[in-house]
Every structure is written in C-alpha cells, then in structure tokens.
C-alpha cells in the first residue's frame, strides 16, 4: 500500500506520521506543498502542525497551496484522504469536510490523552476494529468543532460523525468534551466517507513504552482495510 504525507511550511507531525505509516507496512512518500503532482497513493495524509504559522485562520493558507488542488481532485475521485489536527483544519478550509474548527472554548492549548468513541464503522478507516473506544492524544488550540444547524442535520443524517470525545467506557457526555466541540465531535467524514478529518493524533499512540498502542490498532486495521 502506498501513502503520501504532505509537508507544509510549519507542519511538525509529518515525520511522526511517516514513521507510523511505515511501521504498519505503508510505502510512504513525503510530498512538498509546492509540488503540483501527487505520487500514486492509496492514502494521502495531511499531518498536524502549524502550517503557515496559523496565520489568518488555521489551515486557511495551506488549503490554497499548489498540491492541494491535486489532493482535492484525488479526494473527489474517491481517494482516501486523512487530515490529522492541523490537517483537519486544512480539510475544513478546502470544504472537503463540512464545518470549521474554532478556538478552544476555554482558550487554552490542550495537550493530553483523550478517549474517543467510534461512531461509525461503515467506512474504510474504522471497519473491523473490535474496540468501541480508543485512547488517542490531542494537542491543539483550535479544535472546537462548529457547524451550522443545517450542516449538523446533514452530517447526522448521513452518519458523517466519525468519533466523539468520551470517557474510557465510551460515555459521550459534556464533561468529557475537552474543547467545546458541538456534540463532542472529534472527527468527521465527507459524505462518501473516503475523507476523514480528526483532531486526535493516532500516530502518537504506536509505542507502548512511549504512550499507548491504540494508534497501532488504528493503523494496522487501516492498512488491512485498504488491501
């Protein structure tokens, strides 16, 4: 399976993602934001970081960079595109997934482990995962998911919510919501569920001695689903 990780000026989780993808069997290529063409890929990843210093709005500048037109075309033709953290912010700015990510409700940068409940398994990202709840890591200042009432209705009608913040038993409640996101949304899909944007970092949970292994479950499952 071939993957591509896009590096924008200010990305800082691109190499972590490269390590994670390779560890679970992907042949990964790093792609510079100013390149026009995307290498042949089964999965494209927009990594975390602070592309363009978060100027104007997080992800807004990166969403207009040269490579993004190829990424948008790839996604629109059914290609798998995953945006993590700043990558999620870039995805909402392209319009590939609905909504926006606002400043965290309590104005603090949040860096901690969280539990997320998998809301939908009828997609290539979470299909066949046995767990209902995963422990991932979040590190962001703007992860407060927001959308209009009409958008929320559409998202819910199409089962586009991927994961919700919850406790370790999978209870999705207000006080397990770290950043004020509507409905505890931590990740969403586009309509066809080939594009996934999420704030948590699975690539930070691939080594028991460092953090945890729920990211390993995620990547192992993902590559098997793509085969």
């Amino acid at each position: 399976m071939k993957s591509s990780v896009i590096t924008f000026p200010g990305s800082n989780c691109d190499r972590d993602m490269d390590v994670a993808l390779k560890k679970f069997g992907f042949k990964n290529k790093m792609v510079w934001h100013d390149d026009a063409d995307l290498p042949k890929s089964d999965l494209v990843v927009l990594p975390g970081g602070f592309s363009y210093g978060d100027y104007l709005r997080c992800g807004s500048m990166a969403s207009k960079s040269k490579i993004m037109q190829s990424v948008i075309n790839f996604a629109n033709s059914g290609g798998m595109v995953m945006g993590i953290c700043n990558g999620f912010q870039i995805l909402v700015e392209t319009g590939l997934v609905p909504g926006v990510l606002l400043r965290n409700k309590y104005l603090e940068f949040i860096c901690k482990n969280v539990f997320v409940k998998i809301k939908d398994k009828k997609n290539k990202y979470f299909k066949n995962i046995d767990n209902e709840v995963l422990e991932f890591h979040i590190a962001h200042n703007e992860g407060n998911y927001f959308c209009t009432t009409d958008q929320l209705k559409e998202i819910e009608d199409n089962n586009q919510i991927a994961i919700n913040y919850c406790d370790e038993y999978g209870k999705v409640e207000d006080h397990f919501n770290p950043n004020g996101s509507i409905k505890n949304i931590a990740g969403i899909f586009n309509k066809d569920k080939n594009v996934l944007g999420m704030m948590p970092h699975p690539e930070r949970m691939i080594d028991k001695s460092l953090s945890g292994e729920d990211g390993s479950l995620f990547f192992n499952n993902l590559i098997n689903n793509l085969k």
């Binding site: 104007l56 709005r57 807004s60 207009k64 700015e93 909504g99 926006v100 606002l102 927001f146 959308c147 209009t148 958008q151």
Partner: peptide
C-alpha cells in the same frame, strides 16, 4: 475565497 470563512 480567503479572507473570511462564511460558515462563521
């Protein structure tokens, strides 16, 4: 196209 995000 850039300066505003019309969702918010």
């Amino acid at each position: 196209k850039l300066l505003a995000n019309l969702v918010i």
